[in-house]
């Protein structure tokens, strides 16, 4: 029997890792100026593909690759919608989320139902935990120390001026959304690894929470990781404290489940990180 402290630590890792990967995925696109409400749908599609790949092949690597491929396809669709069709970023993101939720639910019943009762092959959880930290290191390095990162930030801050310098915002964002696809794919694959399979709407708003973490982290990689871990910790605590009362009164589990949402609202009220938004968010 593990000690409560160790248990808390493990479940914090379990809850925060998908947020970190999804959050970094949202961060790369937001830093390039593409608002990423659609991260939720990308993670959901990735989870579905991870389950399909894992179940159909029995090989965890295939599951992972399928997830990355699926998330990349959705991410580049998002690129096409915002950059080629020039659709408002929030509208296109919400549209993709609705399609992802509906389509994965249908494809779950039609394609995945035959695997019910078995576990989908997936990489072990510690792989993703290490991956989440390495991804943070990598994103921070690329953003701050490379040409690609500098150009990405420039486009995110002011696409028009970046264009004057000779950059092509549309092309820069294409690459940024490729990174989003990779990271969202990892996040979706991790969800399947956690749950052992796919269930309808299994992201259940984690993409939105990851996006909130990006905002709290002021669109910087390490603070975003910190915010994700904070949310993960709140979730873990909630699990551990379930059924526990507060000052003698019995509290329903929902009260604890509200913690990450309330934390986000409080943080936005207090304006943490809120002023560092890339100035070119949603602009062309």
């Amino acid at each position: 029997m593990a000690s409560p402290a160790l248990q808390l630590l493990t479940s914090t890792a379990i809850f925060s890792a998908p947020l970190v990967l999804g959050g970094l995925g949202a961060l790369t696109s937001e830093r390039s100026g593409v608002i990423n409400i659609g991260i939720e749908g990308k993670m959901l599609f990735a989870a579905w593909a991870a389950a399909l790949g894992g179940w159909a092949s029995g090989n965890p690597i295939v599951g992972l690759l399928a997830a990355v491929l699926a998330a990349t396809v959705i991410s580049q669709a998002h690129w096409a919608l915002t950059q080629a069709f020039r659709i408002d970023h929030v509208i296109s993101g919400m549209g993709l989320n609705a399609i992802a939720a509906g389509a994965t639910s249908m494809l779950n019943k039609s394609v995945l139902s035959r695997f019910a009762g078995t576990r989908a092959a997936a990489l072990p959880l510690p792989f993703f935990w290490v991956g989440a930290v390495l991804a943070t290191v990598a994103v921070a390095y690329v953003l701050n120390q490379t040409r690609g990162g500098l150009r990405l930030s420039a486009v995110g801050h002011d696409p028009e001026k970046a264009r004057q310098v000779g950059l092509k915002p549309v092309a820069v964002r294409f690459r940024a959304l490729l990174a989003t696809g990779l990271l969202a794919g990892l996040a979706g694959s991790l969800l399947v690894s956690n749950a052992g399979g796919f269930t309808d709407n299994m992201t259940s708003g984690r993409g939105y929470i990851a996006l909130a973490a990006v905002i709290l982290g002021g669109w910087r990689p390490w603070p975003t990781l910190a915010a994700c871990v904070l949310f993960g910790f709140a979730d873990a605590l909630q699990l551990q404290l379930q059924g526990t009362g507060l000052w003698g009164a019995a509290l329903p589990p929902e009260a604890w489940q509200c913690l990450p949402y309330v934390a986000t609202l409080v943080a936005l009220m207090a304006k943490w990180g809120g002023t560092k938004a890339p100035a070119g968010l949603g602009r062309f």
Partner: peptide
């Protein structure tokens, strides 16, 4: 959901 999303897009 799929139809709604597509109509909106």
């Amino acid at each position: 959901g799929v139809l709604l999303g597509l109509v909106v897009l």
